[in-house]
C-alpha cells in the first residue's frame, strides 16, 4: 500500500485532470456562445432602451420564469402528456409501417408514397380540421404529435431494415433460416441504430407538433400559454414558455439518447451514432 502510494502519487490527479479537460472541451464552447449571445441581448436591450413588450431582456425572462414557475410547470405538464402519448402512438404506428413496408413489395408500392405525401401537407393545415373532428381536448394534440413524429421513425427504420448485407442474408439462408428468422435475427437487430436515429429526430419534432396543436385550439399547454400571452403583450412570458419548451425538448432527446446507449451497449461503436 505504502509503496504504491509513493510510487504513483501523480496518477489519480492526472486522470482527473484529463477528465476535466475533456469535460471542459465538451461544455465550454456552447456555454461561452450562449453567454455571449445572452450578454449581447441584455446589453442591446438596455443601451437602446427597447420596450419590454417588444423585446424583454433575458434578465426579465428569467424573472418571469422564476415568478410564474408554477403556472409554467402546470402547462408544461399538459404539453408533456400530449407529447408522450403522441410519441408512443407514433412509435407504434411508425415501427409497424416500416416493418410492413420493408417486408412486402406490395405494401411498399402502395403505402410508402402516401407516407411521404403525408409530410408534404403542412401540419398547421390539418390541425384545425382535427379540432373540428375530435374536439378541443387532448386527442387532437396527440394526433398532431403522432402525424409529425411517425415520419422520421418510419423512414429511418425502412432504411435500416433494407440495409442488411446481401452476403449476411445468404449466410443465414445457408444455415437454413426462414424469411421470418432473417427478419427477426438479422434485419431487426441491424436496423436498431437506424431506429434510434429516427426516434431522436421524432422526440424533438414531437415538441413542435404539440405546440402547433395547442396553438390552433386547446384548453392549456405551453403553446396555448404563448398564444394567449402574446396579444396581452406579455412578451417575457412568451419567452419563458419558449425556454421551458427548449428544456423539455432537450430532456426528451436525452432520454431517447440514453435509451439508445443502453439498447446498443453491445454494438461496436462505428455501428452507432455514439462518439
Amino acid at each position: 500500500m505504502r509503496a504504491s502510494e509513493t510510487f504513483t502519487p501523480q496518477l489519480p490527479s492526472n486522470v482527473a485532470y484529463q477528465r476535466a479537460k475533456t469535460l471542459a472541451a465538451d461544455w465550454l464552447p456552447p456555454t461561452a456562445l450562449a453567454a455571449t449571445a445572452i450578454g449581447a441581448w441584455e446589453a442591446a436591450v438596455r443601451v437602446l432602451s427597447v420596450p419590454a413588450w417588444l423585446l424583454p431582456p433575458p434578465s426579465s425572462v428569467l424573472a418571469v420564469t422564476w415568478n410564474s414557475f408554477g403556472l409554467l410547470m402546470g402547462h408544461a405538464g399538459t404539453t408533456l402528456l400530449e407529447i408522450i402519448l403522441g410519441f408512443t402512438l407514433a412509435t407504434v404506428c411508425g415501427v409497424s409501417l416500416a416493418a410492413g413496408i420493408a417486408s412486402s413489395r406490395l405494401l411498399e408500392r402502395s403505402i410508402y408514397p402516401f407516407v411521404i405525401a403525408s409530410q408534404t401537407v403542412p401540419v398547421i393545415t390539418i390541425a384545425p380540421l382535427l379540432l373540428v373532428w375530435v374536439g378541443p381536448e387532448i386527442t387532437s394534440k396527440v394526433i398532431v404529435v403522432a402525424i409529425i413524429s411517425f415520419f422520421p421513425i418510419t423512414v429511418n427504420l425502412v432504411d435500416g431494415l433494407r440495409a442488411s448485407d446481401r452476403e449476411m442474408v445468404d449466410m443465414f439462408r445457408t444455415l437454413g433460416a426462414t424469411k421470418r428468422q432473417v427478419f427477426l435475427k438479422l434485419q431487426t437487430p441491424s436496423a436498431l441504430p437506424y431506429l434510434f436515429s429516427g426516434l431522436k429526430v421524432a422526440a424533438v419534432v414531437s415538441v413542435i407538433g404539440a405546440v402547433i396543436g395547442e396553438w390552433v385550439g386547446a384548453q392549456g399547454g405551453l403553446g396555448w400559454l404563448m398564444r394567449v400571452s402574446a396579444p396581452q403583450l406579455q412578451t417575457a412570458r412568451v419567452f419563458a414558455a419558449i425556454l421551458v419548451l427548449s428544456v423539455l425538448a432537450m430532456l426528451l432527446f436525452m432520454a431517447v439518447a440514453g435509451a439508445e446507449k443502453w439498447a446498443l451497449r453491445n454494438y461496436p461503436r462505428s455501428n452507432t451514432s455514439r462518439r
Partner: peptide, 26 residues
Amino acid sequence: IGRVAHMHQRDLLLPWRTVIENARLG
C-alpha cells in the same frame, strides 16, 4: 439450402452477438 455448410472469406459475424451467440446461430 440448409443442408450444406458454407463459410465465406468475410467472417460475417453479427456484431451484437457474443462469440458463443454467433457460433450457436445455425
